[in-house]
Design a binder for these strands. Structure first.
Length: 585
RNA sequence: GGUCUCGUAGCUCAGUUGGAUAGAGCAACAGCCUUCUAAGCUGUGGGUCGCAGGUUCGAAUCCUGCCGGGAUCACCA
């Protein structure tokens, strides 16, 4: 910008300075797009570019050369700059981590399971996204609180409980030799089957469908149970506590396998009454209104939306009421600057309304609520439907991935010479790495297709490929040490560097930008795709250039240094995604 | 029907927020194991960026309208 001012004696608009990375097929590192500057220079694009380029080459030390193609001024940065950049980052183990002067306190809610069935593929996407975004924000210097709101009450919970009472034969997870969440899920399915039978019978007796669904004895019993639960009936409460414990123990295992965790777990049974007070307050203030039957509503037609029910005629809450309450409570509990909800895109409307209602109630922090909306996970055959048994169970899937990792590794002879225990750890890391990476590399907001067969692929743009690149670097470092080759802290000499080495350094240079972008968009996918690029670039470089050759020691040292740094970037990037990398594989 | 969202190679996905000749992997085909791990590397073929307009020096990207898929518009959570 200064350059433009000096040459043309006029300060350009900040927006008019467009500097970007030069495309691969052109010579240069950074490109200045001169089109926006023509208004000031009043000269043809090429002449303008040449004038600026000449000036920069003369005045700025780091810029070694330039070339002009049409309206693009490609600037080449001196190799010494890249070498000293590499030296700098090697000396900074926290390279890329932002030290913010004004860190935010960010609360992120994710997972939010129901305690009537086990976790499935959709939950996996949710959990991985939530955990990863939390880690990314932390590295950006923010204080992050991870929260899980467990939906542990309601009619669906009663359905499982009722089925257990009727057909459970006092079975528990130990006796059934089954994870508790799966056992309870079985009863949920059982309920639905029996309920359907009843509805069919009623239909055959000539009842219409709507009535039959309402009048079936089982649903009536479940509703009765819910009433008892709300009245704190001791027997029901005890059963409820026990079965929830089974499920939660089961979830803990799945969470542990996925490598996710929480700072605080909320239970809906504790919070479901919140919000009513807020609504009544809003009613007093005239923000909401009451209908003749006594129900309370919000009028959102000004915003282009419908009316929204907040309290039923009998004074009980709905989902939205609760969410108003929990949002408020959370804001009070943590005084967070930002609240992120990781929730599927089927609730986009809900969160749109939630934000509007909170601001209508006068909460200034309403705008700090972010809905991290993610798309459905579909199977090649179509959508997953729990009732039709086409869900992919989380535990089954994890197990399947690990088993595939095992058989692939065996086939390739990768596991020879490992202790049993270490072998198991490695195949777990790889199997889960494949699964996690497959899910995280896709832009969160897009719905994605999950093909179980393809996801287990370990070649190409996959987690195992990246893990593999990392372990090769580790092995390289070890072998270098064994050979007595010292890994340099930095390189003081000025080695001649090849184009591939340069390219790698330039890619590493982008790391901080990538982190910022990922944090701003709440998108681990940005990092995933970047790490793949690093790993791929490294593999190509690695293939072309032997590093440990005796005769070219000085060159080798530099390459070793570069390898170490690539390894660090891969490891930290994978950590941000919540994916482990093995030291050897 | 209203609102939101997505549409890029046969398949799964990127595309640095408006820049240059559109990028990977898988699948197909042809090569590469005396270098440190071949879970790798090299090459070939494959595109009307859903369609049509508009905005401007310049559009996969922004605006409008169609077409197609998905979500949502519950006194379910």
């Amino acid at each position: 910008m200064d350059a433009v001012q000096k040459i043309y004696e006029q300060l350009p608009d900040e927006k008019a300075i467009q500097i970007q990375r030069t495309r691969k097929d052109f010579k240069g590192d950074f490109t200045l797009v001169v089109f926006p500057l023509l208004r000031i220079t009043k000269k043809p694009p090429e002449q303008t570019a040449n004038e600026i380029g000449e000036f920069l080459k003369r005045e700025v030390e780091e810029i070694s050369d330039y070339n002009v193609i049409k309206g693009f001024l490609n600037l080449s940065v001196d190799n010494n700059f890249w070498i000293s950049f590499l030296n700098t980052i090697v000396g900074d183990p926290d390279f890329g981590l932002q030290k913010r002067t004004n860190p935010k306190k960010i609360l992120i809610e994710y997972s939010s399971p129901n305690t009537n069935k086990p976790l499935h593929l959709g939950h996996i996407r949710n959990n991985l996204l939530g955990y990863s975004v939390a880690t990314i924000l932390e590295t950006q210097g923010h204080e992050v609180v991870k929260v899980n709101l467990v939906n542990d009450r309601g009619i669906h919970i009663c359905k499982s409980m009722l089925a257990w009472q009727k057909w459970g034969n006092n079975l528990d997870p130990d006796k059934a030799d089954k994870k508790g969440d799966h056992l309870v899920g079985d009863f949920y399915v059982k309920f639905d089957q029996e309920y359907k039978k009843e509805v069919n019978t009623l239909l055959q007796q000539g009842m219409n469908e709507e009535d039959a669904k309402k009048k079936a004895p089982l649903i009536a019993e479940a509703q009765e149970m819910l009433r008892k639960w709300e009245a704190r009936d001791p027997e029901v409460i005890e059963l409820w506590k026990e079965m929830n414990r089974w499920v939660l123990d089961g979830f803990d295992i799945t969470y542990k396998n996925l490598g996710v965790d929480f700072d605080k777990i909320y239970f809906e049974s504790d919070t479901y009454k919140l919000g009513k007070q807020l609504v009544l307050q809003g009613l007093d203030e005239g923000v909401f209104y009451k209908k003749e039957d006594g129900s309370v509503w919000a009028d959102l037609t000004d915003e282009g939306l419908d009316e929204k029910l907040l309290l039923r005629a009998d004074g009980t809450s709905v989902y939205m009421t609760q969410d108003l309450g929990t949002a408020n409570q959370r804001h009070d509990d943590f005084n967070a600057n930002e609240l992120i909800y990781v929730v599927g895109n089927e609730q986009n409307y809900h969160f749109q309304v939630l934000r509007i209602l909170l601001s209508k109630l006068g909460f200034s922090w309403a705008e700090q609520i972010h809905h991290l909306s993610y798309g459905m996970v579909e199977l090649p055959e179509g959508k997953m439907k729990s009732r039709e048994g086409t869900v992919v169970d989380a535990d089954d899937l994890i197990e399947e991935m690990v088993q595939t990792a095992e058989s692939m590794s065996k086939e390739l002879g990768k596991l020879d010479g490992f202790e049993e225990q270490e072998k198991n750890r490695i195949i777990r890391t790889i199997g889960l790495g494949a699964l996690k990476y497959f899910i995280l590399k896709v832009d969160p907001k897009k719905s994605m297709t999950f093909n179980p067969k393809e996801s287990i692929d370990f070649n190409g743009n996959t987690g195992p490929f990246i893990q593999y690149s990392y372990t090769r670097i580790q092995s390289l470092i070890k072998k270098a040490k064994d050979k007595g080759l010292k890994i340099p802290e930095k390189t003081d000499q000025k080695p001649k560097i090849s184009s591939k080495e340069l390219q790698l350094i330039k890619i590493l240079h982008q790391y901080p930008e990538i982190l910022t972008e990922a944090a701003a968009n709440y998108s681990p996918a940005v990092i995933a795709n970047y790490i793949y690029e690093v790993a791929k670039e490294y593999n190509q470089f690695y293939h072309d250039h032997p590093i440990l050759s005796e005769e070219k020691r000085s060159v080798s040292q530099f390459r070793l240094l570069l390898s170490v740094q690539v390894g660090r970037i891969i490891r930290s990037g994978m950590k941000l995604l919540g994916i482990d990398v093995p030291e050897r594989m």
